[in-house]
């Protein structure tokens, strides 16, 4: 059982919703992002999504793109991202870490080398935006063979005919994208999301977590109440971009987590 699976099993037993947060590794620098990351579990974060910077984040909005640019300009690399995870793991061996990004930096490293390094560093799962089920043999299947979860995105355009294919090799949880669009864009509506989550849950036992378009504690609660939890990324990254102190960022995260947990 991965840390992701045991965390969701525990939350389910407790009847609690999950709160998942996203930050970009190395944004604006390694020390700050590591300090934020170390504070996330204390702020109520159940699963950490750690962004791997990429020059061309085609599915992300400006907020995440600029975060990636700041990280890359600060010299962030795949090796330094893995080192950040190792440093986090020195004090925390329980909180699941999902690496989220695009395929090319991983392909460039070599899939087998990358998977060995990710496992050793303490990464539990992967969300790779530009690897749909049609490309499963690239990374999804090798990752699961190596003991990592491969978390797939389901979207409003994933119809019933296609849904089984999307769920087939997914593990850990299903990430439902609340809108057709990029990160940090339109606001998610619980009324639109609820029937979609139900549609997916009818086809899988995996937890369904909803992301994209969640920026406030109220939306966090509203969306978590119709799913197994929710993800917030751009809203947190905006706080980091504004140069706020780590404690202020973490108290904002705590308010979002509180929203989800009160659902």
């Amino acid at each position: 059982m991965t840390r992701i699976e045991s965390t969701f099993a525990r939350l389910q037993a407790e009847g609690r919703k999950a709160f998942v947060s996203y930050i970009m590794a190395g944004d604006p620098d390694v020390d700050t992002s590591l300090a934020v990351m170390k504070g996330l579990p204390g702020a109520g974060v159940d699963v950490i999504e750690l962004g791997l910077p990429f020059t061309d984040p085609m599915a992300d909005g400006e907020t995440i793109q600029l975060a990636g640019q700041r990280a890359l300009e600060g010299g962030m690399t795949l090796d330094r991202t893995l080192q950040m995870v190792r440093d986090f793991r020195k004090d925390d061996n329980d909180t699941p870490i999902v690496l989220m990004g695009y395929y090319n930096p991983i392909y460039s490293r070599g899939v087998d080398t990358f998977l060995a390094q990710a496992n050793e560093a303490g990464i539990d799962g992967l969300i790779i935006v530009d690897l749909p089920p049609e490309e499963d043999e690239e990374l999804c299947i090798p990752a699961q063979a190596a003991g990592l979860n491969f978390i797939r995105l389901a979207t409003p355009t994933t119809d019933d005919k296609r849904l089984p294919k999307v769920l087939q090799n997914t593990s850990g949880f299903v990430y439902y994208v609340s809108i057709t669009g990029i990160t940090g864009a339109a606001a998610a509506q619980a009324a639109d999301v609820a029937p979609e989550v139900a549609r997916i849950k009818a086809k899988t036992d995996l937890p369904v977590i909803v992301g994209f378009g969640i920026r406030t504690p109220d939306t966090s609660r509203a969306i978590a109440s119709v799913a197994d939890g929710c993800v917030v990324g751009s809203a947190i990254v905006s706080e980091i971009a504004a140069g706020k102190p780590v404690e202020d960022i973490l108290s904002f995260v705590a308010s979002l987590a509180e929203g989800a947990h009160s659902a």
Partner: peptide, 12 residues
């Protein structure tokens, strides 16, 4: 070649 795109675009 191949089809390395996000799920939203895949059905299209």
């Amino acid at each position: 070649g191949g089809r390395f795109v996000s799920e939203t675009l895949m059905p299209l």
